[in-house]
Amino acid sequence: MAKVPFLDLKLLNAPYMDVLKNAACSVVESGWYIRGCFCERFEQAFAEYCGVKYAVGVGNGLDALTLILRASMELGRLHEGDEILVPSNTFIATVLAVSAVGLKPVLVEPSANTYDMDPKLLEKACGARTRAILAVHLYGRLCDMDEICEFANTHDLLLFEDSAQAHGARMSDGRCAGSFGAAAGFSFYPTKNLGALGDAGMVLTNDADIANMVRALGNYGSERKYVNKFKGVNSRLDEMQASLLLAKLPHLDESNERRREIAVRYCSEIKNPKVILPEIPATPSEHVWHVFVIRLKSEESRNELQKFLGARGIETLIHYPIPPHQQEAYAHEFNGEYPIAETLAKTVLSIPMSPVMTDDEVSEVIAAINEF
């Protein structure tokens, strides 16, 4: 095993072992495993945590985004062929959700400083068929939601959030990731800041119509058993994952704060001039540091650093090595040029970030990077 693993899921869940075991036993003993009391309790708790009215548990984060868009189409707010503005620098799930329901993704370049969608480029990307923006809080950093909200309102566009990496990220006024737009999708994949022990997802919204439609679509298109009003799918948050997430939710803010402590050390103590560090937001809680991403000045230098750290037992990953427009799945879909996304893909490197990292492990990472 690596001296400093990128992320040790067993160690990450170890502090909650007793409550997780109790939660799992409670589900088994209940005899009810799909859409029961634990799902209802977690939906309510997570909605309250994020400051929204409604939450609907679904199978995973991709389903959350897909069902939001599909619900908007069923409600007549979007139509097949409509364009959705999405960032060019994101995990491909964001783009897949748009394509899956017959909408057209239009890519918007990120800010080179924040890696999030650049609001100043929205106007250029907006066309006659543009109907919505799907903002992604990448790496756990909130987008510039004030500017994006203003643009969406001015241009009469729907606003959705991909909050899969931003559990607990908040503005200085307390507004939380997932509370800004018409609806937001969350993933509880095990590596997330709030992670399940399997796949799980959630849709948040203040719109009762969207909540009810998502719930029906995720239940085979049925509001009542065996009565199928819509051509739905099977995407439901099961009781086991809901109970485990409910047990871990009270610890989310504490674990996010530990991530911020580590980020502050990285940003203040990594002194290697070859390394470009991320910005610390003016409001620290804007960023929950799902991953800590540094940049090098070239792909060659990035690869050399990754090899250098690996030789010293420090695991790293690349988020993400191929931008969506260069994936084979989208080989013939995007005609524009996206140099910022391409540059980031060639030069970013994610170093270890976990709330259970020890101070010595953090020091080990810092020392190795400074030595490079």
Rank of each mutant, 00 (worst) to 15 (best):
M1E: 10
M1W: 04
P5T: 07
P15C: 04
E29L: 14
S30P: 15
W32V: 05
I34L: 14
I34A: 08
C37S: 13
R41T: 05
F42T: 00
E48D: 12
E48S: 14
Y49S: 04
G51H: 00
A55S: 09
V56D: 03
V58G: 03
L62N: 05
D63N: 12
D63Y: 03
L65H: 06
L67S: 07
L67Y: 01
A71W: 00
S72I: 01
S72Q: 13
L78I: 10
D82R: 06
E83W: 03
E83T: 11
P87T: 15
N89C: 13
V95M: 06
V95C: 05
S99V: 13
V101E: 07
G102E: 07
P105R: 06
V106H: 03
L107P: 13
A112H: 12
D116F: 08
T130A: 03
R131Q: 13
A135D: 09
H137S: 14
L138E: 15
G140T: 01
M145Q: 05
M145Y: 11
E147W: 05
E147I: 02
D156G: 13
H167K: 05
A184N: 05
F186A: 08
F188K: 01
K192F: 02
L194M: 06
D199E: 12
D199Q: 13
V203A: 00
D207T: 07
I210Y: 03
N212W: 02
V214P: 06
A216F: 01
Y220M: 12
G221C: 08
N228I: 07
V233N: 05
S235R: 02
R236W: 02
L237P: 01
M240A: 14
A242T: 09
L246G: 03
L246C: 03
L252H: 11
S255R: 14
I262Q: 04
A263F: 04
S268I: 01
E269F: 06
I270A: 05
K274E: 10
I276L: 07
I276W: 01
L277R: 03
L277K: 09
E279K: 12
I280H: 01
I280Y: 03
I280Q: 09
T283I: 07
F292L: 02
V293F: 02
R295M: 11
K297F: 07
K297G: 08
R302K: 10
E304N: 11
E304C: 05
K307M: 11
L309F: 10
R312T: 02
P321T: 04
I322R: 06
P323D: 09
P323S: 08
Q327E: 14
Y330D: 11
Y330H: 14
H332Y: 10
G336I: 10
P339K: 00
P339H: 00
A341C: 14
T347K: 04
V348L: 06
S350H: 03
I351K: 01
M353F: 07
M353A: 05
S354L: 03
P355R: 02
M357K: 04
D359V: 08
D360C: 04
V362P: 08
S363I: 05
V365R: 00
